[in-house]
Simulated scan of single mutants.
Amino acid sequence: MSLADKVWKGKRVTDLERLVVARLAAASGKPDWEVFMELDDELDRVTADAPRRPAFQAGYPVTR
């Protein structure tokens, strides 16, 4: 969740990404470098859209 929250806001946190890579590699049996390459591509894609998100979210105000 922490990684998703950071990336959604356009932030990249190296130590957090390394932890996620290590866990994904251990679970999948893939080498760390391969997992990193796949994850890095996705994180780049998600962070690229981050600047547009506040305006989009503002279009759906929370009302009580």
Rank of each mutant, 00 (worst) to 15 (best):
M1Y: 08
S2T: 15
L3M: 10
A4H: 12
D5Y: 09
W8I: 14
W8F: 10
W8V: 14
W8G: 09
G10E: 03
K11R: 15
R12C: 01
V13M: 10
V13T: 13
T14C: 09
T14R: 15
D15P: 01
D15I: 06
L16P: 00
E17A: 10
L19E: 15
A22W: 03
R23H: 12
L24Q: 02
A25M: 02
A25Y: 05
A25R: 03
A26E: 14
A26P: 02
A27T: 08
G29Q: 07
K30S: 09
K30R: 12
P31T: 05
P31M: 07
D32Q: 14
D32H: 09
W33T: 08
E34M: 07
E34C: 06
V35G: 00
V35E: 01
F36Y: 07
M37W: 12
E38S: 09
E38K: 02
L39A: 03
D40A: 08
D41A: 14
E42N: 08
E42F: 13
E42V: 15
L43D: 00
L43M: 08
D44F: 12
R45A: 15
A48F: 15
A48E: 15
D49T: 11
A50E: 04
A50S: 10
A50G: 05
A50W: 01
A50Q: 07
A50P: 02
P51T: 03
P54N: 01
A55D: 08
A55R: 08
A55H: 11
F56L: 08
Q57W: 07
A58H: 06
G59Q: 11
G59T: 03
G59C: 07
Y60W: 13
Y60V: 10
P61Q: 04
P61M: 04
T63G: 05
T63C: 08
